[in-house]
Design a binder for these strands. Structure first.
Lengths: 222, 222
DNA sequence: GTCATCATGTAAGCCGTTACATGATTGC
DNA sequence: GCAATCATGTAACGGCTTACATGATGAC
């Protein structure tokens, strides 16, 4: 879960823990509450597994909180000598004792595995949200599968709620009723949102097929 | 959290663990996923604390899954002799080895404390939902406070999201954008839902004051 | 008599939190 | 030099999940 999010963010660019936490809060309102107490151990775990590695820092022009515009190049940006020196020093550390992490090929594979895996958190609300946040890194079929599985789950929830409403519902107080009604409406909205995403996905797919057809057969129909 | 929900359900009527789990799933879509592995220990904890107690079962006409219509009377429904016998037997058990729990006065106080308490889970999404589900058992002021604190929290989230959108937002992919937009809309809807609940609350309060005014001063203004 | 369901419980473990401890850098 | 912030980590603990173990009851 957290590891998935970390890998997803590092896929875009190498970052250090503190910045990672900020972005986690920004992009995913979902898991805005991640604390250092879980973030750093997660990073350490990933480093132990070989999913991420500490890389030499290339400080951008802005040392304060604002965004570094240019992408920090992957490992190897500094000469091997300096990197070796830093390694001898115990760990690769940046300006303020920062430890900047980058994703490794193994980490990429782990990421794919976590994103695709059906395991427990896949049908968790937060699990879906985090996966969607990094859906751009998924294979199109996997992405479509994610969306459709989620849709199916929400529909099932809705059916279950309706069943509960019709069958032996004990008379509930106004608060419980309002809660259930609002929940149902929210689920309905979520489903139509997913429908829009799924439609967009199919459209993209068709466009890609069409383009491929053009390229392969060199047909010509404007 | 779970204990709060258990106490809330038991406030309505004594139940055994298995049934408790079913109702938890029905009423609160939120924590439909509670498992026996957490439910039974929670009940045991509550029994240890004295928040709930096992009571003698009064089997309704329906032994299957359907709802027992009449409220099961509180402890003391069976003669002291039989209760004592059952107690000697080790524990109070019903027909299928069921252990039916009822809330005690101490449990009622614990419930109030948990519902009112600001502690950690109060600003948790699920925490709010569960509290609202049992809001009918709260004092009107506490209930209003709950709703208004929740509203403030959502408004702050919204502001934070808007700030993030205007300031140095790195260009996000379509999925992240859609996720954030949908999240924002959902938060807005949640806020207006809360507004309706808060309005209703004020209306009730005014009505109560008005009625009290009538009763106390015997004034007459139609 | 045996199978599905109802019913209660235990054990191991995951994932996350809070609180605490530490140190580097910058601004005043 | 002192405070605020940036930055990394550790320790203790909480709550909930999965998987497992057990037994009663009713349907067929």
């Amino acid at each position: 879960m957290l590891e998935m999010a970390i890998l997803g963010l590092l896929k875009e660019q190498p970052l250090h823990g503190y910045e990672l936490k900020k972005r986690l809060g920004e992009i995913l309102g979902v898991l805005s509450g991640v604390s250092f107490g879980s973030l750093y151990p997660a990073l350490a775990r990933l480093e132990g597994t070989g999913g991420v590695e500490a890389v030499a820092a290339e400080e951008g022009s802005t040392t304060n909180g604002s965004v570094v515009p240019e992408r920090i190049p992957m490992t190897g940006s500094l000469g091997g000598e300096r990197a070796a020196f830093r390694a001898r020093r115990g760990a690769v550390r940046g300006s303020r004792g920062k430890k900047i992490y980058a994703i490794t090929p193994a980490g990429g594979r782990l990421f794919d595995q976590l994103m695709t895996g059906e395991g427990r958190s896949a049908q968790d609300d937060r699990g879906f949200l985090v996966r969607l946040a990094f859906a751009c890194h998924m294979a199109p079929e996997a992405r479509l599968g994610l969306l459709e599985r989620r849709r199916a789950l929400l529909v099932e929830r809705l059916v279950r709620a309706r069943l509960g409403a019709t069958s032996g519902r004990r008379r509930l107080d106004a608060y419980a009723v309002s809660l259930i009604e609002h929940g149902t409406e929210t689920t309905e909205r979520d489903i139509s949102w997913l429908d829009r995403l799924i439609d967009a996905e199919h459209a993209t797919e068709r466009a890609a097929e069409h383009a491929a057809g053009h390229a392969m057969t060199e047909r010509d129909d404007p």
